[in-house]
Nucleic acid binder design. Sequence first.
DNA 1: TATGAATGAGCATTCATTCAT
DNA 2: AATGAATGAATGCTCATTCAT
Lengths: 200, 200, 200, 200
Amino acid sequence: MPRTVDPQLNERRRRQILEAATRCVIRRGFHQTSMQEICAEAEMSSGGLYRYFDSKEAIIAAIAEDERAENAAIIHELLRTDNLVKTLQGIMRKMLKVFANTDYGRLGVEVLAEASRNPKVAAVFSHNETELKAALVTALKKAKRDGQIDPGLTLRAIAELLLALIDGLSTRTLVDPGCKPQQLDKATRVMITRLLRPSA
Amino acid sequence: MPRTVDPQLNERRRRQILEAATRCVIRRGFHQTSMQEICAEAEMSSGGLYRYFDSKEAIIAAIAEDERAENAAIIHELLRTDNLVKTLQGIMRKMLKVFANTDYGRLGVEVLAEASRNPKVAAVFSHNETELKAALVTALKKAKRDGQIDPGLTLRAIAELLLALIDGLSTRTLVDPGCKPQQLDKATRVMITRLLRPSA
Amino acid sequence: MPRTVDPQLNERRRRQILEAATRCVIRRGFHQTSMQEICAEAEMSSGGLYRYFDSKEAIIAAIAEDERAENAAIIHELLRTDNLVKTLQGIMRKMLKVFANTDYGRLGVEVLAEASRNPKVAAVFSHNETELKAALVTALKKAKRDGQIDPGLTLRAIAELLLALIDGLSTRTLVDPGCKPQQLDKATRVMITRLLRPSA
Amino acid sequence: MPRTVDPQLNERRRRQILEAATRCVIRRGFHQTSMQEICAEAEMSSGGLYRYFDSKEAIIAAIAEDERAENAAIIHELLRTDNLVKTLQGIMRKMLKVFANTDYGRLGVEVLAEASRNPKVAAVFSHNETELKAALVTALKKAKRDGQIDPGLTLRAIAELLLALIDGLSTRTLVDPGCKPQQLDKATRVMITRLLRPSA
DNA sequence: TATGAATGAGCATTCATTCAT
DNA sequence: AATGAATGAATGCTCATTCAT
């Protein structure tokens, strides 16, 4: 390899490690996962891993960054739509499907716990949330202009409420074994409609 | 050997340890907190601590149990009220006040992370949530009977949505430094009203 | 033990560790000695060792401190004597005897190497040397007043020369296997006499 | 594959590595310097470095060898002179100038520490010292024959004393921040004169 | 009841060295 | 001749837990 440096190797190895680490974190939690476990899962030596990540902390930060990337599509959707209520309902439906797998909540909680204490992870997280909130507020503004939503509402507050709802739903399966997120689709749709729609 | 065993000593010591541990967990996280740190914070020897808690795990389980106890008052309120909408709004207002302090979210996330992996903690948690959900469903049923809420709604779904919203709001300050929970009071009130009230 | 804290335990354990560590450093060098080796040599667990020394660095600093303590007797002798030339000759004779064992030089070099890079060790060392030099200068001054030594000499320079000579002699056996320090006694005596004594 | 193998390349690369390694050792010490640091400092890959030096140990041995080469000029001078006292004084003056830079002492201590434990380095060192001592003894003998020095002295002992003094002076600045080697020139000259010259 | 010294497995990380290219 | 990715044993240090007193 050396002679001809493979430009994609770096990215490939990072992904390999990140995916292994993500599986480990979901399975056992971040602090309970040792670097050796991640190495084993990534089928890589510990020395090798450190070529791609400077520290354990850097791995959780990268996982947080990964989660962030997933928001890009949502943001894009929010900013393009002409029918915000419908779009939000669609986003929610997709999310509820994702949340049915406890993996998502487990990972999210670990990353959140880390973010609440580790400035490097917090930075990624905060950027993430700020971006998402901004997109949501922008979308709400446009929808308000178009008469799609109740003009009496504080948009920032609505956005925060919606984001909180999503966060809360993501961990519901961890907490309540009886909860089947996909059965909440209808109620969620109703909630979004009633919250936003101008009252008759 | 003391002449009379103080029957309250046991409970007093447990509280002393639990409060110290809670401070530690809020400050540094559960897995980053060592037993020695908890001992130091509780001004107690490590040998001594183990008389009151069998393991580190037992401490986080007890912290979860503590959180559960806080729900008792809420459950009581839910089951007594004649005006559910108003009561829920009141509960929310109180919670938003609590959530303004990041401590609450930090602790909650740690406990939740642990619950999602540790069966003993999960049991406490699950019991907690089940109880709360049951109380909420009962209250919703009664309110529906009384014509206070929209008869078209699935009560279990509404309950889960409300609980998710609370959970989500509790961690909002960790994730979004710009979020001031108490400013969400009005929006929350609107949301509750619109969600539950029979549409005009 | 806990109930009745043994006030000497701390010091005893520190000595036990320090002596073990000193043997290890002489045998293999500071950086080639692992903490586990020191633990094994001290017949103590690694966790136990860290109760008495915060770090590996703290051990080498304590070894340096130990060396320093050995100077106390010399300083005392220098400050009491009425016949400096004779006293210096006596000190030299004792030192040459010590230097015959390569252990002394080996240990000294390790400590010196560490001192030249590690501020904590350097501080101990510098204090040590300053003290010794000051005592030597004081003794020289007094001897000069008493007419015991050549009034034309710069006392500080003489002191530094003598200290350099001692340092150099301490490592001679490491470098020159044929060197038998005790055979240098006469030459050293001559050197001291000629250097200090007023020329006839 | 190059048409013509550069016969000097090998030597050039060795020098490049050796100089880089020497800088690293002065800066951080031998055992604290990693091979990767040396590679970086030498602007060379780790694989490449191993073409020129078999191991880390081989590098410190080569550094020791380098120091040895520096003695050649001194030996030459000692063996040619007709006025040993003056020559020794001249040598000392030059050395004191060199010793003013702590680099010299730092490097020397590292090499010495290694020599005291590693047979390969010890061999270089011992050869070095033996050679120097032999030259000094030869010079002393000749000077004695010429009546330049006191006939009562054991020449080997004088030689060892002088070498010890030089060694000791080389590390003085590491140990005593107040020491300015060049200010010791006069005292050193006096010492040499008195030690060697026949007493009046 | 309480102490705190002791344990030793476990952790994140480093590093001399190798080798396919 | 040179590269740099890979290895994996080893390192300094931590920590939940135990137990003699």
